[in-house]
Design a binder for these strands. Structure first.
Lengths: 209, 209
DNA sequence: ACGCGAAGTCAACGGTTGTTGAATTCGGCG
DNA sequence: CGCCGAATTCAACAACCGTTGACTTCGCGT
């Protein structure tokens, strides 16, 4: 089996199936343990072919790291004045992840590899920092914009880590609505609320009307 | 230099210095890239000695994973009725981490290795789930206790990931007080607030009076 | 029909890794 | 003082890794 030379036509794009196998393995076991040989085996292909398509293992990671969805597309058309802004953000993000295994896989790659490999650490830093900052900057309050964006990111990343990657019991099996209800007001607070120290005055976070 | 045989007495516990070197490297580069040889080199010791003390590399990781501080000790004596409960929790945790590089290192190990190595993933799941649950169960509202605890954990883990491990710009350089002021009300909400969907009624999160 | 380049495979290389067993040196106990 | 066991080192092994270069086979344009 697996004779030499070019394969007879008919089956799908080989390059794509290699990339899919790579994404799966990166998500499952991280960068170092996802060996090129294992990726090739899952794609039913020779190890050399992987590097023939992607050059080097780092390049393969870079190719696997692209975000599956444009964050600004998910969060388009938000009403900055609504007191349900935070809830709406939470709902959209949670629904996107709950609906698509593909999206969850990419996030798992980002988290698994972004904590050892500098190449991916930069991507993760970007997601938490710049990306969310730009997509939320026109609905967030103008003061402390950077802090607000990173706080939103930190809560969402922590949530995804627990719910989708680690699958912590109480969090992974909770219904979407419940999580949205709990987290929504928090995002509302981070986006539009008063971030100053409570002891210096009175501040309230309105979760709804 | 580095002659054979037992070392002349005088210098400190070798086993301990190996463990320290291992913790540093696990925190810096994760499990796979922290080679036994590199750990031995940092501890100025032969690689074989590392395994002589700890048996196997997995055992070494297990030894390095122990929590540096008892969470229940940090969170002892909280006033469940105070509307500053969340702020107090945030302050204590943040101060603990900001003050001690040792604590930050252990958390970095947990996050870096807990996302590839199943051995550590369990420890991380435990921290997010059971540990925080038990230490907060007597100040959290009795309903949805598990969800409340995991939500608190997810926020704090996300925060530590961004602030201490990834060192995201807007978050890593913010003063403690500001972060406490922003996150405190959120923890208050998770611990004591109404987690039901806002559209089903009115709910407010009092951050302070 | 035919050849050129792309797609795919094979076998091998040099390097690194975790782990092991024998050899060596020293502290401490009798 | 002499010796036993613990502490430390050395050298080596087998496995595995990423990467490379030569080779083969097919699709397609002319």
């Amino acid at each position: 089996m697996a004779r030499r030379g070019r394969r007879p036509a008919g089956q799908g794009d080989t390059r794509e199936s290699v990339l899919r196998a790579a994404r799966e393995l990166f998500a499952e076991v991280g960068f170092d343990r996802a060996t090129i040989r294992a990726i090739a085996a899952r794609a039913e292909v020779d190890p050399a072919l992987v590097l023939h398509w992607f050059g080097t293992k780092d390049d393969l990671l870079a190719a696997a790291l692209e975000l599956p969805v444009d964050p600004s597309r998910i969060l388009a058309g938000l009403d900055a004045e609504s007191h349900l802004l935070g809830v709406e953000v939470a709902r959209r993000v949670l629904l996107t992840f709950d609906a698509s295994p593909e999206v969850r896989t990419r996030m798992a790659i980002l988290l698994r590899t972004g904590l050892g490999h500098e190449h991916a650490a930069e991507a993760l830093r970007d997601l938490i920092g710049r990306t969310v900052l730009t997509t939320l900057s026109d609905v967030a309050r103008p003061d402390d914009r950077e802090l607000r964006a990173t706080l939103v990111s930190s809560q969402m990343v922590g949530l995804m880590l627990g719910r989708y990657v680690l699958q912590v019991p109480g969090l992974a099996d909770a219904p979407v609505d419940q999580v949205v209800a709990a987290v929504g007001p928090v995002l509302q607070h981070y986006l539009r609320g008063d971030l100053r120290l409570p002891s210096a005055g009175t501040s309230r976070i309105r979760t709804a009307r």
